[in-house]
């Protein structure tokens, strides 16, 4: 935990000044002492991995995406007998998963920890000063992707990508948050169509769905999960998907590429381990996750209910993918003015 302990302290002082600075420094000091005490003196790796239980680290609280992924993994790994190691899911919420990243980094070299990694694994380091990034960790596998759909209200005036490209007014687009993959897709689509969209960030999928239901936005860019029932009940219509090929979940929805808009960008769901782990531990984790992803139970209990498109990548491919995604996010976030060079 060498997370800029001097930096924040001095800035704290600059803002609050005077008496509070002493208190601030005392608090920082105590925090530091506390966290040092928690770091193990030396981790001894047992000969046969795993020497003890494996800890699954979720960067968000119970009920969040990371938590659901890891708890489902733990359940299937145990019920299918993929590993007999005891698995314990631990929530380390806070700081858009930076707390969990700091926690995992404090166990550098120890393969008994596996952390869920989604887009925040790339964007949080880019947008803040936590002093860590994706390259500090060992990629294990990408389990699947969450494609982005372009969805309209079925009773609205725009019923095809062509309608949207030919719209006369500036269209309102809804998505979750700023600098999110939804916004990046909206911006790329606008560029490909030669149009500017008015992107409106909402907090959470629920608000995006509400906004489209009541016609406050003209279309939304979203993951399948929150809208698939609305599509099935014909209140919404999906006009395009951001994958390379059509997906089984929505066989009738054309890809953006089919319409000559060169956009292939999805959210990923993967797992990473701490940095500098030995080969034995890494091989064990990789084979465990790979067996998991091939089990039918995993498909029916996690992938299908959560509308995740299976697209497994092993450690090397996942590493290259993360590097590519880091580049995409860095460029887009810089273009959007969210991060400075």
């Amino acid at each position: 935990m060498t997370v800029n302990t001097t930096g924040p302290g001095s800035r704290f002082k600059a803002v609050i000044g005077g008496h509070m600075a002493t208190l601030g420094r005392a608090i920082m000091g105590l925090c530091l002492a506390g966290s040092m005490a928690l770091v193990p003196v030396g981790s001894v790796m047992a000969q046969d991995f795993p020497g003890r239980g494996i800890e699954f680290v979720a960067g968000y609280g119970p009920g969040g995406g990371h938590d659901t992924l890891l708890r489902s993994m733990a359940k299937v790994i145990q019920s299918e007998g993929i590993s007999d190691a005891a698995i314990n899911v631990v929530n380390k919420p806070g700081g858009s998963s930076s707390v969990a990243m700091g926690y995992l980094n404090s166990h550098r070299g120890d393969a008994h920890y596996l952390m869920a990694a989604t887009s925040s694994f790339i964007t949080t380091p880019l947008m803040s000063n936590i002093g860590l990034d994706y390259s500090d960790f060992t990629p294990i596998a990408r389990l699947g992707i969450d494609p982005e759909l372009l969805v309209v209200n079925a009773s609205g005036p725009y019923q095809s990508l062509e309608d949207i490209a030919n719209a006369e007014k500036t269209l309102n687009v809804g998505g979750t948050g700023t600098g999110s993959i939804e916004q990046i897709v909206a911006v790329q689509l606008g560029e490909a169509m030669g149009k500017t969209f008015n992107y409106i960030p909402f907090q959470g999928d629920g608000n995006v769905t509400s906004a489209l239901l009541s016609g406050q936005v003209d279309f939304v860019i979203t993951n399948p999960g929150p809208v698939k029932d609305f599509i099935a009940s014909k209140r919404f219509a999906a006009l395009g998907i951001s994958t390379g090929e059509r997906v089984d979940l929505f066989p009738d929805v054309p890809t953006f590429k089919e319409n000559n808009y060169d956009i292939e960008l999805s959210l990923f769901r993967g797992v990473v381990a701490a940095g500098d782990i030995n080969e034995e531990g890494k091989d064990y984790l990789v084979s465990m996750v790979k067996k998991l992803s091939q089990s039918p139970e995993w498909k029916t209990s996690y992938m299908e209910p959560n509308s995740v498109v299976p697209d497994f990548l092993g450690p090397e491919d996942f590493e290259n993918y993360l590097e590519k995604m880091n580049g995409v996010y860095k460029k887009s976030l810089t273009d959007l003015g969210i991060i400075k060079q």
Binding site: G7, V15, G95, S98, G102, S128, T178, P201, L333, I338
Partner: peptide, 16 residues
Amino acid sequence: YISGYVRFGFTPELIE
């Protein structure tokens, strides 16, 4: 979440 900026994020815990 509207501008995407982090305000007063002195330590990682304060990002949220």
